[in-house]
């Protein structure tokens, strides 16, 4: 549509501007203290010492493990809870279905930040401060997830459901033997989305973790930053690079998938 000799340079310039901060962080993580203080952009010599120091100064491996556990649990929990709800809204005609669906959707209008004070008090009462439960269970039910899966389940022809009943398949068997496998792509989309958002969550882990045992990697970065800022920018950036690699990998692998799945959910 546009001349490609116009588009290529534009694409190049935009890419450089956009990913410069990430590359810059990577370069800084390879420099020693002196070079950083000179305000260099490209490292003259490469050192890995910052990475070793980052692991020494905060228990980064423990944090990475915690983040992994938390993100995986939320992903699985969310997929189970949302897919059950979405299945019910599509295939089971029950009294008040529209009203219940409306109530589900209305939760999307309540910002998490507006309810965080009582939620924090609830978690405290349940004794879930510094526990995986406190970091995961509040995020299992997701109206957006239910909505997205409902859009995809609707594509499954109702005849398939009727045929499965004639064949004597129970509702639950129909759900996990037919609906789930058929909707694999949308489940993967929602799963990747859930994993990314949980991995990157900041405010809630900040509130409900006060020691290293379950603290996630995002809070680890903040800790690293407050500890090392005065002296060691290289160490802080090494920490940042370690933390963003899993999320970026997941994004690059699932980019096409995410784009397709999320757009479909948004406009149908």
């Amino acid at each position: 549509m546009i001349n490609k000799w116009v588009v290529y340079p534009l694409l190049m310039i935009c890419s450089i501007c956009l990913i410069f901060p990430i590359c810059y962080a990577f370069f800084i993580s390879l420099m020693d203290g002196g070079e950083i203080l000179q305000g260099q952009i490209l490292p003259k010599s490469v050192t890995y010492q910052n990475y070793i120091d980052a692991f020494k100064s905060v228990p980064l491996l423990q944090y990475l493990w915690n983040s992994f556990i938390v993100s995986t649990s939320v992903t699985i929990g969310m997929l189970v809870v949302s897919s059950l709800a979405a299945f019910t809204f599509v295939f089971i005609p029950f009294h008040g279905r529209n009203v219940v669906f409306f109530i589900f959707i209305s939760t999307m209008m309540i910002p998490w930040e507006a309810t965080m004070i009582p939620n924090f008090l609830t978690i405290q009462k349940l004794g879930w401060i510094n526990s995986y439960e406190g970091l995961t269970i509040p995020f299992f039910a997701l109206a957006f997830g239910t909505f997205l899966l409902r859009q995809h389940f609707k594509i499954i022809p109702l005849e398939l459901y009727e045929a499965s009943q004639v064949a004597g398949l129970s509702q639950f068997k129909f759900f996990y033997k037919i609906v789930l496998p058929v909707s694999k792509t949308s489940l993967v989309t929602l799963g990747a989305y859930g994993f990314l958002t949980t991995w990157n969550m900041y405010l809630w882990p900040l509130l409900v973790t006060s020691n290293d045992s379950v603290r996630t990697v995002q809070i680890g970065i903040k800790q690293l930053q407050t500890q090392e800022i005065a002296t060691e920018w290289g160490v802080v950036m090494a920490g940042v690079i370690i933390v963003i690699i899993p999320a970026l990998l997941l994004l690059f692998l699932g980019q096409k998938q995410l784009q397709k799945g999320l757009t479909q959910g948004s406009i149908k």
Binding site: I19, I28, I221, L248
Partner: peptide, 24 residues
Amino acid sequence: VFRTLFSSTMGMSVAASSVIWLFL
């Protein structure tokens, strides 16, 4: 390749991004 690069900030957490910009 460009599409992947353009979408890359979606994978950046608020903590990591903020620390990078703090230095920028």
